[in-house]
């Protein structure tokens, strides 16, 4: 199980690296979306690993609410590049 979590961290490093090296804002947004999903799933995995109900609730809330901020940011950036 520990090994699986380390593999997940490696998968998380890919979008982080992508967000760093790519200059296009939409590629960065994609990397952000990928990283946000991955971190919340990792929170869920950790909560099941430790059998901690409280962390699991936080993971689910982040998973279901955190994407809304991403959509707001996407619309703002779209307005920006229209002008």
């Amino acid at each position: 199980m520990n090994l699986m979590l380390i593999a997940m961290i490696l998968a998380l490093l890919i979008p982080i690296y992508e967000a760093w090296q790519d200059e296009d804002i939409w590629q960065k947004m994609l990397a952000f979306a990928s990283a946000a999903t991955k971190t919340s799933v990792m929170i869920l995995v950790v909560s099941v690993l430790r059998d901690d109900w409280m962390i699991g609730v936080v993971g689910v809330i982040i998973l279901s609410v955190g994407n809304a901020g991403l959509m707001l940011l996407a619309h703002l950036i779209k307005r920006m590049s229209e002008q």
Binding site: I16, K28, M29, A35, A36, I43, G69
Partner: peptide, 30 residues
């Protein structure tokens, strides 16, 4: 670029939430 920095700030927020949750502070992560 300030907009790119905002996107990276989002990634930083996600990673920070993960760190806080792993260290056991569920309320701080939320």
């Amino acid at each position: 670029n300030p907009y790119n920095a905002l996107v990276i700030r989002g990634i930083l927020g996600a990673v920070a939430a993960l760190v806080y949750a792993v260290l056991g502070a569920a309320d701080v992560a939320l």
